[in-house]
Write a protein that binds this DNA or RNA. Structure first.
Length: 576
DNA sequence: GCCGTTTTCGGCCCGACTGTTTTCAGTCG
């Protein structure tokens, strides 16, 4: 964890501690907001402090700047140390329990000395609890249910897992008579790399009945809420067990306002609303109002238009400067999935893939691609059945034959070559020179200090025959942290040597991630968006890669695999 | 605790659902 993340975590905890102590809610929010902005800063906070610019971080004023400074200088924040003595860390963890909020927890903490999960469970089973106002039988039962969900709770669900599930549910809802326009909203629509729940919006002429039918669907294990416009359920084993699915049902006159509202993010919506207030408008999920008069609501476009803004694509709605860009009319013209002309990172049965060259190429052709690069592993990746020089030659022969046979798509001979711990590549230069596409990646020796790892990857960037660095930070979301690499230096070197960085669309990776991609393209670095497909259906993960790139404000011009075959081949051959 | 082309003080997004509140508080998103 770097200093930014450490400080963000402490502020987040302070916020939670204050909420359990029932402090000023705006102070609580102030700490949360500062935590978010510091964690997304994209710049070393120590450097920012040295330039005396801490208060230039949104949400960081004089007080919080002093606390950041204190942490940098002493490794401690006195306020946090003090609060920790009163409010145990284990207690604020309990805020994640559904149905148990800060008010109740505060009461249990102050009156019944609850300090941990086991304390809480004991208290809920005891008699004393029944003395408390607002904590009758049903509420206690709800909290107990929350505890059991909390105990089973997994980490946030991966985008690539949640998206297909949302499509199944959308289909099921569309089959309810009278529904129309069922779409995904929330963080899933924004293509966040992980999601906490699945938000779905639909229109219906009988909202109550639609919610009711939704809560009775076969995949539902638990119903958390069921009202006239909103239902909330927990999915059972037939889907991704434990994930929460929320449905909102509105009429057509409010569809756009509701979609805008439920797509979030929260931070984006707060900005949108305060903008509305300044213009003398009021905005909620039913529409935009001037006094009692509704001025917008049917479409998202008109909601933004009523505020004097152009439409803001969902992937940008994170309050990362999109409001300002919209006001100045400088929003990026984001890349579309249909701009992609081919996939430059795929595997076949020659290494650890499950499909042959021919099968991969034919699937790529069906997607309308003009080219596909087959980039199997190099010998050091033993587990992945990396190709020896001899097998590489044999593969080349098969690939050339397939290329002749299959018309309408160019099959490129490539490799995903290992960057070995000493920074050398797993094939000699004279071999790399003969390949159409060379992607260099780290697959072993992850535990290195940042200096060594960065140098290791930079030596691959400097190799004249490397085209791109594959999954540059090596993370596996929810499973493995990224290795330590100085992204800024990597970007600088990629720019200097004219090399591309990959946005790997494989859903456990999504690497580079949104904030890093944005940094790279803003610096002028070209990227490739690829799937790392090991089977034909994984070629469809391009959608996730493009979504991640869109979250990184990427335009078509920054992406090499939007080039037509001829232009791409020209670019690739610059390194020969 | 932050922030300011309406404010350096007084705001800080807004509504649905639930429970036990007979008019509203807590939780959630």
């Amino acid at each position: 964890m770097n200093k930014n993340q450490e400080i963000a975590l402490i502020f987040e905890r302070i916020s939670n501690m204050l909420s359990v102590l029932d402090e000023n809610p705006f102070k609580i929010r102030a700490y949360k907001k500062a935590a978010l902005n510091i964690s997304e800063l994209g710049e070393d906070i120590v450097e920012r402090a040295e330039q005396d610019g801490l208060t230039s971080i949104p949400g960081v004023g004089k007080d919080l700047a002093a606390k950041v400074k204190e942490y940098i200088d002493t490794g401690k924040i006195t306020e946090y140390e003090k609060l920790s003595k009163t409010v145990p860390l284990e207690l604020i963890e309990l805020l994640r329990i559904q149905g148990l909020g800060p008010k109740t927890l505060s009461l249990l903490f102050k009156e019944l000395k609850v300090r941990s999960l086991s304390d809480l469970e004991k208290v809920l089973d005891g008699d004393e609890i029944l003395e408390f106002r607002g904590l009758a039988e049903k509420k206690i039962k709800d909290i107990k249910k929350g505890i059991s969900i909390f105990k089973e709770s997994k980490e946030r669900t991966l985008l690539g897992v949640a998206l297909p599930i949302s499509e199944l549910i959308i289909n099921a809802i569309e089959n309810i008579p009278g529904t129309e326009g069922t779409v995904v909203a929330g963080s899933l629509r924004r293509f966040r790399e992980t999601v906490r729940d699945i938000d779905i919006l639909t229109m219906s002429d009988n909202t109550e009945e639609t919610v009711k039918e939704f809560t009775q669907m076969p995949f539902v294990k638990d119903v958390l809420a069921s009202g006239s416009t909103k239902g909330s359920v927990i999915a059972g084993d037939s889907l991704n067990a434990g994930i929460q699915v929320d449905l909102r049902v509105v009429g057509p006159e409010s569809y756009g306002a509701a979609l805008q509202y439920f797509s979030g993010s929260k931070a984006h919506n707060v900005r949108v609303r305060s903008l509305a207030t300044k213009k003398g408008l009021k905005i909620n999920e039913y529409g935009v109002y001037k006094g009692d008069k509704k001025v917008a609501g049917e479409t998202e476009h008109e909601v933004y238009e009523s505020l004097g803004l152009p439409f803001i694509p969902p992937e940008l709605r994170e309050d990362r400067g999109e409001i300002e860009a919209a006001l100045e009319n400088t929003l990026p013209d984001l890349i579309e999935l249909s701009d992609i002309k081919g996939d430059l990172h795929t595997h076949t049965t020659w290494s650890d893939g499950k499909a042959t060259i021919k099968e991969m190429a034919e699937s790529a052709k069906k997607l309308g691609y003009s080219y596909i690069a087959i980039t199997d592993h190099s010998p050091s990746s033993v587990i992945a059945n990396g190709l020896s020089l001899k097998r590489l030659a044999l593969k080349k022969k098969e690939l050339e034959e397939a290329d002749k046979k299959i018309k309408g798509i160019k099959i490129l001979m490539g490799t995903e070559v290992d960057i070995k711990p000493d920074g050398t590549l797993d094939y000699p230069d004279k071999v790399l020179k003969e390949l159409d596409v060379v992607i260099a990646s780290v697959h072993s020796g992850f535990k290195m200090d940042i200096e060594t790892m960065t140098e290791r990857i930079l030596s691959a960037v400097r190799n004249p025959y490397v085209h791109a660095i594959g999954h540059p930070t090596g993370r596996l979301i929810n499973e493995r942290d990224p290795y330590e690499v100085d992204i800024d230096r990597l970007i600088e070197a990629a720019l200097e040597h004219g090399k591309a960085l990959e946005v790997n669309g494989s859903y456990p990776r999504l690497d580079l991630k949104d904030l890093h991609v944005r940094k790279a393209v803003e610096a002028g670095v070209k990227i490739i968006i690829s799937t790392d497909a090991h089977r034909t259906e994984q070629l469809l993960q391009m959608k996730l890669g493009v979504g991640t790139a869109r979250r990184g404000w990427v335009e078509k011009d920054s992406v090499l695999n939007t080039l037509e075959t001829k232009e791409l081949l020209e670019w690739l051959s610059m390194y020969r």
